[in-house]
Amino acid sequence: MAYELTGKVKLIQDAQTFNSGFTKREMVVTVEDGKYPQEINLEFVQDKVSLLDRLQPGQEVTVTFDIRGREYNGRYFNNLQAWKIQTGNPVDAGFDQTPAFDHDSPPAFDDDVPF
C-alpha cells in the first residue's frame, strides 16, 4: 500500500553505498502538522537514489512511499521507503511528476544492514 506526504525539503543526505552494492540516500521533509511540524525521514534505495539529484532544501514536494519493517537481533525497525517525488504545487501548470515505481519488482534489500 502506498502512502503520500507533502511538505518542504529540509535536508538531503549524501548517498551511502555498502560493501554488498546496496545504495541508499535519505531526505528529511518538514510536514506542517498543527502546532508542531513533523520532520519525516524518507529513504530512497538503488535506482531511486537519483530522484533526489534535482531537489534543493526549501522545495515543496509530495513524496509517495511504502512502509517497510523488519526484525534485526530481536529489535524491530520501520523505514519509509520512497519511490516517487512530485515537485511544486499540483494546482500549478508547471507541476512536475516523476514516473511511478513498478510495484511488480520490489526493491532489493541488504540483509547485512540493520536498518
Rank of each mutant, 00 (worst) to 15 (best):
P106Y: 13
F115K: 12
E60F: 02
D53V: 05
R75Y: 09
H103T: 11
S20T: 15
V61L: 03
G58N: 01
K24W: 09
E39V: 03
M27K: 04
K10P: 06
N89D: 15
G34C: 13
F115Q: 13
G94I: 04
G74E: 07
W83P: 02
N73T: 02
E43F: 01
F22N: 04
M1S: 10
K24V: 06
V31P: 05
V45E: 02
V28E: 05
F77T: 08
D92M: 00
P114M: 08
F65E: 08
M27H: 08
F95G: 00
N79Q: 15
P106V: 11
K84C: 02
D96G: 02
K84W: 00
V91L: 11
E43M: 13
L55S: 05
V29D: 03
E43S: 15
V9G: 03
L5P: 01
A93G: 13
G88K: 04
S50G: 06
T62M: 00
P37Q: 08
N19M: 06
G34N: 10
N79F: 08
T6C: 08
T64M: 06
G69R: 12
L42F: 05
E4Y: 07
A93S: 13
T30S: 09
D102W: 11
L5H: 09
R25K: 15
K35C: 06
K10W: 03
N78E: 10
G69K: 09
D111I: 11
P99F: 07
G88P: 08
E32H: 09
N41D: 03
M27L: 14
E43C: 13
M27E: 04
L51I: 06
S20N: 13
F22M: 09
R70L: 06
P106H: 14
V9W: 04
T17D: 04
Q46L: 07
Q38K: 13
P90K: 01
N79W: 13
D66V: 02
I12T: 14
V61Q: 00
L11E: 15
N73W: 04
G94Q: 08
L51E: 09
R70M: 02
K48W: 00
D110F: 12
G74Y: 07
N41I: 05
V113M: 10
G58Q: 01
T62H: 05
R70C: 06
D110K: 12
G88R: 03
A108C: 08
V113I: 14
N89I: 04
V113F: 12
D14Q: 15
S105K: 14
Y36R: 13
D96N: 10
S20W: 07
Q59C: 00
K48V: 02
Q86S: 08
Y3Q: 07
M27I: 15
E32R: 09
K8S: 04
N79K: 13
K24L: 15
Q16V: 15
F115E: 06
T64L: 05
I12K: 10
V9C: 01
P37V: 09
L51T: 01
D112K: 14
R25I: 08
Q59N: 00
M27G: 03
S20V: 06
D111C: 09
S105A: 12
D110C: 11
Q16A: 12
P106N: 12
P99M: 08
G88S: 05
I12N: 09
P107Y: 10
D47G: 06
R54W: 08
D110A: 11
A82S: 09
